[in-house]
């Protein structure tokens, strides 16, 4: 690396990560806006929010929390091992991360499915009967967990692409910034869930 000519292409990894972080800041602001909306209505309809929260499955919420936290661990490990060139291990951890992401969505599917089966969905006659507070709670529940779910789905797709790129050796011990950035995105999705979980499932 001593005879570096001026035309040599040097990828700017630090700039790449910074760009990712800036995108993540906008994601934080997006979710923060929704959390603000939630907290305003929670102070307004405190009793209704409590009774609605009890109707959600704490077990399902807790299981999904553990699933996402574990997927964050496997994500971090997949980057850690690619740095030392252990590609097979990295692929294993990447596939575990994707599988856990899918498991989270499957769990969410059954959770939403059960609620929809009971006629609870935005603007449903059943829900409108139960008053404004509950309508607000479930409206926000579907909006926020739905938007988060879309982020999980995007993450799963992104990580699948990273998996293919690792197989094709386009991600390796020298070039892994794409995997790192995808990891940052995945962890942020985890952070959002860390707040969503107590906010919807654990009101007392």
């Amino acid at each position: 690396m001593s005879n570096m000519s001026i035309t040599e292409h040097r990828p700017d990894y630090e700039g790449s990560r910074l760009g990712m972080w800036i995108f993540l800041f906008t994601e934080m602001l997006l979710f923060a806006g929704l959390f603000l909306l939630y907290s305003v209505f929670r102070t307004r309809y405190s009793p209704e929010f409590h009774t609605s929260s009890v109707e959600l499955s704490r077990t399902a919420g807790t299981v999904n929390t553990i699933i996402l936290l574990t997927s964050s661990l496997t994500m971090a490990l997949s980057i850690s091992v690619i740095k030392s060139g252990r590609r097979g291990m990295s692929l294993l951890f990447q596939s575990l991360t994707v599988s856990l992401g899918i498991l989270f969505l499957v769990n969410k599917y059954f959770e939403w499915g059960a609620k929809l089966w009971h006629g609870i969905y935005p603007n449903s006659p059943e829900l409108l009967q139960r008053g404004k507070g509950k309508t607000m709670f479930y409206g926000l529940y579907y909006l926020m967990t739905g938007l988060h779910g879309l982020h999980v789905l995007a993450g799963v797709i992104l990580l699948t692409i990273m998996f293919i790129m690792t197989v094709n050796n386009r991600i390796n011990r020298e070039q892994y910034v794409r995997l790192e950035n995808s990891g940052l995105y995945w962890h942020l999705v985890d952070v959002v869930w860390v707040y969503l979980f107590p906010v919807f499932y654990l009101i007392n």
């Binding site: 040097r10 990828p11 700017d12 990894y13 630090e14 990560r17 936290l69 574990t70 964050s72 661990l73 971090a76 490990l77 850690s80 740095k83 030392s84 020298e174 892994y176 910034v177 790192e180």
Partner: peptide, 19 residues
């Protein structure tokens, strides 16, 4: 040698954080 994120956190630390 690389301009990537050079700081590597060990397996044990990651697992401790997860725990």
């Amino acid at each position: 040698m690389n301009k990537n994120n050079d700081h590597t956190i060990g397996f044990k630390t990651y697992i401790a954080i997860w725990f």
